[in-house]
Amino acid sequence: MKKWIFSIFVTAIVGIAIFFVESDKHVSVKEHHRADPADRFHEGQTGITRYRVSGEGKTVILIHAFNGYLESWDPNVSELVKAGFKVVTYDLWGRGLSDRPLINYELADFRIQLREIVELSGGGSVYLVGASFGSVVAADYALHYPDQVKKVVFIGPAGWPGDTGNEDAFLALPFFPDMIFGLFGRQIIEPIVEAYLHDPKAHQWAIDRWSEYASLPSFGRVALLTMRNSPVRDYTEGWSAFGSLNKPNIFIWGKQDISFPVENSIKAKLLVPNTKLIEVEDAAHWVNIENPRIVNGAIIDFFGL
């Protein structure tokens, strides 16, 4: 019994140490990982963002998921470029090789980052594609800059509340969740990421790449703060406001999605009545990875040339 209590005590001390070390500094991680020659790094008002630009034509900006990263769009970029688009991908704050700044990770923080990406892409009109939480970022950006955004594609969109009472109560606790995520953030989230894929073994590269980035400093802090302060699980008001905007859009949903199940499309059609729904078989949350042929074709057809 004494050994058990001692182990808990040591774990708590380590967690406290990690929490204070990670919570009081801006972390830049690009030196922790060998960058690809195609990578570009922009130092903006909040920190350094990694991004890539491919092709020429209409500007299409791809915004990855909560647990995504720039390379999660690899199954899509080349086909969009072949179709005549300029494709821009980037890492959201705290993901991939973008900085882990000392911010609250509110939706406004991601909007400011996307604004800088739009400016880096040449400004003017853009076409947005969001995956999961990236869909929330895309919708929010369209609401704040409606004249800039021509059309939007939402892939496996987040922001549909379910039975999350216990999760919300846990996240609202002071200090304890910070310690747990500081110690075990990667281990907590890894099975969630695996469930993003209907057939994880067929796309092991996506999980392995996530694991690489999740091993970099401050991963747990960023994940926790984003869940606490951004509408990852409940963007109902935002979806309703976007629906009122009457901006051309489509939803693409994996029929085996267990993160935000396709049944949420019923709510989507009510809140965004001018939308079109595309359901994809044999695909879970990361639809663009599991069935890029359908996703790429839908994007190309919808955006046109």
Rank of each mutant, 00 (worst) to 15 (best):
P75R: 15
V77Y: 01
V77K: 04
S78I: 03
E79G: 08
L80P: 13
V81F: 04
A83S: 07
K86M: 03
V87F: 12
V87G: 10
V87P: 15
V87D: 15
V88M: 05
T89K: 08
D91M: 02
L92W: 11
L92S: 05
G94T: 13
G94I: 04
G96E: 02
G96S: 07
L97R: 09
S98D: 09
P101R: 08
L102K: 00
L102R: 03
L102T: 00
N104T: 10
Y105Q: 13
E106W: 10
L107C: 06
L107K: 08
A108D: 09
A108Q: 07
A108V: 10
D109G: 03
F110L: 04
I112R: 06
I112C: 06
Q113A: 12
Q113E: 13
E116Y: 01
E116H: 09
E116S: 02
I117G: 05
I117Y: 05
E119F: 01
L120I: 04
S121C: 13
G123Q: 01
G123T: 05
G124M: 08
S125D: 15
V126A: 12
V126K: 10
L128F: 10
L128T: 14
G130Y: 04
A131C: 11
A131W: 11
F133A: 00
G134A: 00
V136E: 07
V136P: 03
A138W: 13
A139L: 11
D140I: 00
D140Y: 01
Y141D: 07
A142F: 06
A142P: 08
A142I: 03
L143G: 00
H144I: 06
H144Y: 00
P146L: 00
D147N: 06
